[in-house]
Write a protein that binds this DNA or RNA. Structure first.
Lengths: 141, 141
DNA sequence: CTCGATGCAAAGGTTTTGCACCAGG
DNA sequence: CCTGGTGCAAAACCTTTGCATCGAG
């Protein structure tokens, strides 16, 4: 089951936050592009296309921030370039991204046992999905 | 055994490149801070301290570029913040960095079997040490 | 009416680039 | 000399922030 835009909005309202046109549009776009990894710029374009009105980039970043603090959104860094954003309804996952072409794959948390061990041997623990693992995909290797 | 600055310089000369004051200083600083991960800004500061003369930041970046193309240097990204640079004399290694405090650890390539398998299961291969794996160290977790 | 949200513009930090001048070989 | 290296200044890129205004509740 996928989170829908209204659910996001009512969660905001429940926290005493206001429902504005921009927030409505961001939530709808996020809900519709549910399985995508959108950059702030992508989000911005789609929001403007949806509303027909100009929206300031800073507003997009602020809405991302609000949704992230509310726990609905996560933003992830894929090596170079802009960060990307995705909803977090169906459990967190880690990301692999191709350094060359940008193709991505998701890693379920229960696949990460060996990696956890490797990191543990050096006194580290995974514990964040904020940065992707950068690698090479089959086509680019 | 560690690469020393003169070795770097003679390699440059052997490629038909010129030995300048700035290049001499960068190579010496790199050789002396052999096991560190320096940012371009660190490098810049130490080069100016060593020569007593102002050096333009762009010159530092260009020298990094030259040394990297010559295969002596690698620059790595540790999550947010500036990239870091280190010599590559004793075999490539991968990096783990703590997302919170920035502490780093090196992963020898022969420790990466499991990670290689994990990535392979998704059609990816490691094959670059250009981006660190971002995690949490014991103190910050 | 009131406070939160937005637009605008500017700055932030790192890195790159264009261009004219300088200097290594 | 002559080409490559450097300084300077500006831009590029993504994101954040200050401040005045707008609008949701």
């Amino acid at each position: 089951m996928h989170i829908n835009g209204d659910l996001l909005l009512s969660s905001l309202r429940a926290s005493g936050l206001r429902i504005t046109g921009a927030r409505r549009a961001v939530c709808q776009v996020l809900a519709e592009s549910h399985d995508d990894h959108l950059t702030a710029a992508d989000l911005h374009k789609r929001v403007e296309a949806l509303t027909g009105k100009p929206v300031d980039p800073s507003t997009i970043y602020r809405i991302i921030d609000v949704l992230e603090k509310a726990g609905h959104l996560r933003h992830v860094h894929f090596g170079h370039g802009p960060g990307v954003v995705h909803l977090v309804d169906q459990g967190a996952h880690h990301h692999i991204v191709c350094e060359t072409c940008g193709r991505t794959a998701d890693l379920a948390l229960d696949e990460l046992g060996d990696l956890t061990e490797l990191l543990g041997a050096h006194g580290f623990s995974l514990g964040s999905t904020h940065f992707a693992i950068v690698a090479q995909c089959g086509d680019c290797a």
